[in-house]
Design a protein around this nucleic acid. Structure first.
Lengths: 388, 388
DNA sequence: TTGTATGCGTTATCAC
DNA sequence: GTGATAACGCATACAA
């Protein structure tokens, strides 16, 4: 009687062809494929934990001590060229692969930097990763990436995992839910370097890498004003996020500078989802005193607005100006082109990585509190009314 | 005399404000900020490796043995509720964080799955990651991601790092340079589960998750034929990649089925860079017998072609039909809309993750050789000549 | 130049 | 129920 290795049922087991010379079965109960090992002596040996070559194996087979092997492997000075070469040869022959776990345990250093990002849907964070990865790899560090999925709880569990894995430093961009920062304080307390980027908070005293959100928004809105737009709305992100707050500040400052009043019902702050963008966009476009321009917190929202405007027959940029943030690839191609703020994502990644490495390598270095990277306003058709 | 902590020079050291109550200096030689610790007793203790609480600390402070603590922490059965609670309380009080390194070392299990992807520029791999991450997290596994950057050498060093870190399983999509697979064989030899996805190879006998590249390309090209295109070119990827070969096969099969001859000079296989796309696109569009349609290996290349056609005043889709592959976000918005093949990226990530977990958790399970996920042809303006 | 012994933090196998 | 103690694989201070 064959028993399913997963659900342990014996009914509904069917033969399902051969795989690598072994009879394969399919358990109809749990829809699971497996092979049966009872006649296969190798299956048992396969179950036994495979022995990985260690330095002790090398030492024994060479008749030297393990410390000699260790030294040879790491190219220490005090070792004769012959034994050194013998060790290296034997290591190759035995297919020795160093155990980073043991190494890290004894050295209290993992050579790994952790990175926690809130999402992977926009190209923003992947690009930051590219930059950070480049720097870290060059410095001989590994990068281990986790995704908090915009959830505070997941962020907490991520930091806990990072802590457990004894990463040497952490790069983190917060979720839109995060408004308590105790889980970050732990890193400070333990002396594990921490660098915040993009989604930062002021409550914790560590280096931060951001863009000039305030200034960028200010210039974006001023650009709209210069193009003759009168009633400029703002579709913002959640105010838990520093970037949302800064962009809102920039928006307000530009309006104030040009003597425009700020209508509260022209300002919406909400979560960064496509659904919310549609709902809020709908609201704005259906207002009796419909705005003639919208400054959105990101390109995804801006594009939703453009699509809705097209559905409603509102012409862009004549009847409605739109400006986004981040310069996603699609923004160059949509409709009349989306005016947006380009962020230096690669540079952000590189900078955060460089900073965390400085903090890791040198104990007594203090970096500037904050680095503000410069953005660039990319003017396209969605806001160009005067041909500027 | 103040000495720079980095370059050890004493010249050109300038005061540069205060940071966290400490005098900060700037070394003009190496452009490095640091604070001087000589008057700061805490700086020395900061240099000393911080002690992390261990189970032994808990044991001592409670007057029990470390095995008791270990058992309590893991909720083993044989332990009295009182001691258990006491341990838990003390752990909290002492801010105990388990050391995953030590745990993994003794258990020979890291609860970590590795993933190596060739690039982060297209949304394809980030989306696969989202899917895999979802499944792995739910199963209590960590995902550590590395990027080979389309370089065979980096891929090798990545696999070595994964090996050193003793990951429990590996998910990998190959670089366009990879044509030797010894570095993957090592995983098989060590019994570390390996699942290939998207960019796979036949030389190695492990589970693979791919899409129906052949069929998808076949249908895409047939779609062009149905729209009356006569001279269909193919801008393909490097033939080292299985996906490139499959897409080429599909292209040829469709032409043959419809009695069209295959012109070799209408088929270009090249590396997947924007620059190459422009060069090859230029070549195709400048041919005396210019193709009236181009099937590109990915959307980036297809979009380059659309842009160049626009520059040259070639109308799309009338004079030139274009079809891409992958359905990048920008493809929906460019020009008349890019017809393309949508890939189930999330599902690909989920499937690879599920498979690797099955291989990790159950020793004697054999999965199907290959899973072929279904794509979908998204027809847009760039190829619609008949109003279908 | 090489070997010995100890520790890194944890789990597991025995005892009691 | 609980406590010694031996692994896990490696680096290193100290001896030789």
């Amino acid at each position: 009687m064959i028993k399913c290795v997963k659900c342990e049922q014996v009914d509904h087991i069917m033969k399902a062809g051969y795989v690598r010379g072994k009879q394969r079965y399919l358990c109809k109960t749990c829809n699971y494929y497996f092979t049966h090992s009872e006649k296969d002596p190798f299956a048992i040996s396969a179950k036994r934990k495979r022995h990985q070559t260690t330095i002790i194996d090398i030492a024994k087979s060479l008749g030297v001590s393990n410390s000699t092997v260790s030294r040879a492997l790491h190219g220490h000075a005090d070792i004769s060229p012959e034994t050194r070469q013998a060790v290296l040869d034997k290591a190759l022959q035995l297919d020795y692969q160093p155990n980073q776990l043991a190494y890290s345990l004894v050295k209290s250093k993992t050579n790994t930097i952790g990175m926690i990002v809130p999402e992977f849907h926009n190209p923003f964070f992947p690009n930051v990763i590219i930059g950070a990865h480049e720097v870290l790899t060059k410095a001989g560090y590994n990068l281990t990436i986790m995704q908090s999925n915009e959830s505070y709880q997941v962020e907490i569990s991520n930091t806990r995992a990072m802590l457990a894995n004894r990463i040497d430093g952490l790069l983190i961009s917060l979720t839109q839910e995060t408004n308590n920062f105790d889980h970050l304080g732990v890193f400070e307390k333990r002396g594990i370097p921490l660098v915040l980027f993009n989604r930062v908070c002021e409550q914790i005293d560590v280096p931060k890498v951001v863009v000039n959100d305030f200034e960028a928004s200010f210039l974006a809105v001023e650009h709209l004003i210069m193009n003759g737009y009168e009633r400029i709305a703002h579709l913002g992100g959640p105010l838990t996020l520093s970037v949302s707050r800064e962009r809102l500040r920039g928006y307000k400052a530009a309006l104030e500078k040009h003597g425009k009043t700020i209508d509260d019902h022209m300002v919406i702050q909400g979560m960064l989802t496509q659904q919310k963008a549609r709902i809020y966009g709908q609201y704005l476009l259906d207002l009796a005193d419909r705005p003639d321009a919208i400054f959105a917190v990101n390109d995804s929202a801006a594009i939703e607005i453009i699509l809705m405007a097209k559905e409603k027959g509102i012409s862009i940029p004549d009847e409605l100006g739109v400006v986004g943030f981040s310069d996603n690839p699609e923004s160059a191609y949509i409709g009349p082109g989306l005016t947006t703020v380009r962020q230096p994502t690669l540079e952000m990644g590189r900078t955060t990585a460089e900073w965390v490495l400085q903090l890791v390598d040198l104990d007594d270095v203090h970096l500037p509190e904050k680095k503000i990277l410069q953005t660039e306003l990319i003017v396209r058709g969605s806001s160009r009314r005067c041909g500027d």
